[in-house]
Simulated assay, not measured.
Amino acid sequence: MSTSSNLSPPPIPDDVEKLLNDLPKVRVWDAKDIYQWEGFWFPPAFVKSTITLRSRFQARDDDIFLASTIKTGTTWLKALSHSLSLHHAPPVDIYDASAPRLLHTHLPYVVLSNSIKNSASKIVYITRNTKDTLISMWQFFNSLYRPNQDPFPIEKAFDWFCSGVHQFGPFFEHVVEYWQESQKWPQKILFMKYEELKSDPKGQVSKIAEFLGRPFADENEVDAVLWRCSLGRLKNLEVNKSGNILNDVPNKSLFRKGEVGDWKNYLTPEMEEQINQICRIKLEHFGLFL
């Protein structure tokens, strides 16, 4: 069943650089330029690659897409989903192009290709408490752009976050898009909350397994996956203590505390109330509470 209109994919502009020059641009974290396109803010490379993806990417019915905005539990979801995708499956041949694919994106729903939306592929989306997302994002970019320096002013990061001006933001619209689609197509999109995964890992991981068509046979199998993918264990793996996932993103920067409620150590009561008010306006109207 289609989850979007069967429109032809948009053409690739002849001059993407000209497109970027015409888009609104903001310098964030005193380090990087991001561009507003299709209602969201992207690093320039993502504008270019997403235009190509929308026009050329062909999803398969057995594809699994993990989707999220940044700093909402993405790395943990990746580890869990990889373990689950191998559950009851034969050994994977990484050189077999026909093998099932597990893919991740930070892209908002609106810019996904029709191929993804209209296929029988599945999407697991994870989000997180708004205030914890802000603090995790702030800490993450401090580690990237201000190592061994004073942190970027939390007040300025707060203002950017609330106004939606940050990588893959606005956060609120990103979350709402996937939430609404998951309500319309629950067999297509599983919407998850980081806090529920933390408080009920067995129940939530079992839900992912059922959604992906790989249910557990017994509780021991659930325990094995949770042990293999525990945050403490992942953080202490050598591969996650060194090396880079991207040129300028050390693997170790993807792991911090992973705690719920850490925002209380950083935000003032006035900041808390302002974000709560935005959540009431932007999220609760749709029956979504974070």
Rank of each mutant, 00 (worst) to 15 (best):
V47H: 01
A99K: 14
Y109M: 08
L112E: 02
T52E: 09
T72W: 03
L112H: 13
R54H: 09
D62H: 14
I64K: 02
I51F: 04
L112A: 02
L103T: 10
K48L: 01
V110A: 14
T69M: 07
D96A: 10
V92Y: 14
V92N: 10
T72C: 15
T74I: 10
A67R: 04
F57Y: 14
S98I: 02
L103D: 04
L80V: 15
P100H: 11
V92Q: 15
S55M: 00
D61N: 15
K71W: 06
I70C: 11
H82L: 08
D62F: 05
A59H: 05
V47D: 00
L84Y: 01
S85N: 09
D62Y: 09
S85C: 14
H88S: 13
L112R: 04
R56I: 07
P90Y: 13
H104G: 13
L102D: 07
L80P: 04
H88R: 13
A99M: 08
A89G: 06
T74E: 07
V47E: 02
R60G: 00
D63I: 09
W76M: 09
I70K: 05
T52N: 05
T72Y: 02
K71C: 08
T72F: 02
L103W: 02
L103H: 05
D96G: 07
P108H: 12
I64L: 15
T69W: 11
Y109D: 02
K78V: 12
S83T: 04
H104V: 05
A59V: 04
L86A: 14
S68H: 07
L84T: 05
H87A: 01
